[in-house]
């Protein structure tokens, strides 16, 4: 494992909410164009870990992070790091679909506009391409100027993914992106993620074991702020090395 290959590396990451230690020394690396699933019982720190990767935890007062997180070999917690640029490279999809109360078009164009893009034709082109990649173009092409809030939850979530794709990140972080959706919508999103793998590195938090085994290359199992086990998804699910992992996967706790 040479470090040049990894797109993100984290070493001994501790995170404290005030005095409460939510991550207790997590070291985990990610290869480009892979999907890594983060699994573990509720409250074990999956979302917290995910949010350290694009520094979204900065928004919460009283958070301290120690350890080392690098993206493309640059320390993202160094004072020189531009979080705005970082977050353009590392996009995020949230658990609850959270489109802005704007039109569908404006939602997807948002990232382009804030980046200062003015060319209308170019914006329209990227919006269309992003909606197509997010497999929601057919659903919305006739109502781009309608409010995104009028869409179904599954469509909203795919518009939110398109909104992230438009910015052309290298990495997409997904925090339980389908947990609020019905199985059909979830299936669409899973198929889409598999297609996106060609171009993006993805890290997905999920409580759905089938989902993790269906779409991920690697799986990391968290428990109580610790990373217990990390490896090929097939190995984790068929032949876990740690007892805790086995217990969790076979549904004995969590």
């Amino acid at each position: 494992m040479t470090s040049e290959n990894h797109i993100i590396e984290t070493k001994d990451v501790h995170l404290y909410y005030g005095k409460k230690e939510a991550l207790k020394g997590v070291s985990l690396d990610f290869l480009p164009n892979e999907i890594t699933a983060l699994i573990g019982p509720s409250g074990c720190g999956k979302s917290t870990y995910l949010r350290t990767l694009n520094r979204m935890n900065d928004l919460i007062p009283d958070v301290t992070v120690t350890g080392n997180v690098t993206f493309e070999n640059k320390d993202i917690y160094s004072p020189k790091m531009d979080t705005v640029e970082l977050r353009k490279k590392i996009g995020m999809v949230f658990q609850q679909p959270n489109p802005f109360p704007f039109s569908i078009f404006e939602n997807v164009a948002y990232g382009l506009r804030i980046a200062g893009m003015k060319d209308k034709a170019k914006i329209a082109e990227i919006v269309e391409a992003s909606l197509k990649k997010a497999a929601v173009w057919e659903d919305v092409k006739d109502k781009l100027s309608k409010s995104a809030l009028a869409l179904s939850g599954g469509q909203q979530q795919r518009v939110c993914i398109a909104r992230v794709l438009a910015v052309e990140p290298a990495i997409i972080l997904l925090d339980e992106p389908t947990s609020a959706l019905d199985p059909v919508s979830s299936g669409k999103i899973e198929r889409m993620l598999l297609e996106l793998k060609e171009e993006y590195t993805m890290i997905i938090v999920t409580h759905n074991m089938q989902q993790a085994s269906r779409i991920s290359d690697k799986t990391a199992f968290f428990l109580d702020g610790h990373l217990i086990e990390h490896g090929e998804t097939r190995q984790i699910f068929t032949n876990p090395h740690k007892k805790e992992t086995e217990d969790y996967i076979s549904g004995r706790f969590g």
Partner: peptide, 22 residues
């Protein structure tokens, strides 16, 4: 809602852009 602000910041908006545009 807080999640509008989060979505905007996660897309690489500055705090001021988030206030102004969202």
């Amino acid at each position: 809602p807080r999640y509008y602000r989060e979505a905007s910041l996660a897309l690489g908006a500055t705090r001021w852009q988030t206030i102004y545009k969202v």
